[in-house]
Design a protein around this nucleic acid. Sequence first.
DNA 1: GATTATATGGAGGATCCCTCCGTTTTGCAA
DNA 2: TTGCAAAACGGAGGGATCCTCCATATAATC
Lengths: 208, 208
Amino acid sequence: MARSAGGEAAPQQAAPGQKAPRKPRADAARNRERVLEAAKAVFSAGGPEASLEAVARTAGVGIGTLYRHFPTREALFEAVYRREVDQLGDLAEQLKDDAAPVEALRRWLRANVELVATKKGMIAALALATTGSSDLYAHTFDRLTKAIGLLLGRAVAAGEIRADVSAEDILRTLVGMCYLHEQPGWQASVVRLVDIFVDGLCRPALTR
Amino acid sequence: MARSAGGEAAPQQAAPGQKAPRKPRADAARNRERVLEAAKAVFSAGGPEASLEAVARTAGVGIGTLYRHFPTREALFEAVYRREVDQLGDLAEQLKDDAAPVEALRRWLRANVELVATKKGMIAALALATTGSSDLYAHTFDRLTKAIGLLLGRAVAAGEIRADVSAEDILRTLVGMCYLHEQPGWQASVVRLVDIFVDGLCRPALTR
DNA sequence: GATTATATGGAGGATCCCTCCGTTTTGCAA
DNA sequence: TTGCAAAACGGAGGGATCCTCCATATAATC
């Protein structure tokens, strides 16, 4: 399977027990990154059935290299998807410090909508990816829930948003809203819905 | 596999202006039906990437025949999907006369869950199909909404179900519930949710 | 039965999938 | 720096799939 070859600055763990593994090669990491970038572009444009050879070509890498890093098409999907999700997580981290609480949440939600919009072709691919691997699904759910929780908690703590909504509720709402991403004009509609939803969050719970 | 030959009685419209079009050939209709049946089976088992040549083989038909009836993979998906949706519509029609109002609705909803379960492989294919064609989506939404409306209206009229829920609400709920069809044990969970939901429908609206 | 529009099936060129292996690059030690 | 071996690279190639094209077969009509 796809070993997580440390893309980030290699932590350089010294395996205490046995052998000292050689430091991972630089070109390997570089090429892995290139393939991921190319895959994102190619799948976005051509949908999930796009040719893997086209991906390798775009990445400027031999087909063999692609297959060594990602033994199956699904593995490649999964890696691209994980990356995308992680970036959303990072964005939350960033917005937490940058913007006013409610505004931060609003922006993050909009970024999600945008992602669905730009990566039209990817979406179908992702559907396939999540169908295959359920810990990918778990990871996604976890990461996004935490991202929302981060922004939501801050806004609640600041008293700017009602307290009776969970991060899961918001995630589900978002996913549900985007589920209709086939019909024309959906994006404007969803952005509007998101805004309304955020506005609604700002009011205290109605009497019930 | 002896298919009952004449599906619908051919309407035989006489084009008034120009030429009298010849009656469509019987083998064409028969083969088309065979291919659809085979496609359902093959895609269910092998997912959306299954070989079209395998479909043709299963149908006992040449590959050329398959391509004439369905010029693209998507066209085939779409046809299979439409058929499935129409069958759900027909089921509603049937349940309307057969069972007690609430029970009829409950059964129809469960049939939906079952369809998602059995046709696991198909689901991904359908995601692709709906992504491609938006009038397919419209047709689906329309047909299913009407099916629910049929069963719902009867139950409401009989005073067995609260009146402040729309068919769209129910469809959305159902879709949302099935959206999680990746994790293990989802089906039991969704069936339970559906039952609870139907139970809930039977109570009058809570004070608000 | 003859005619003809229509449907059929499968050969075949192009493409894609994925494995295998000889060559090249990189990290490490001397 | 130089040398060496582990690790990564690239792409050839066998097999499978896609989809077109057309000679042949067949149903509908005369």
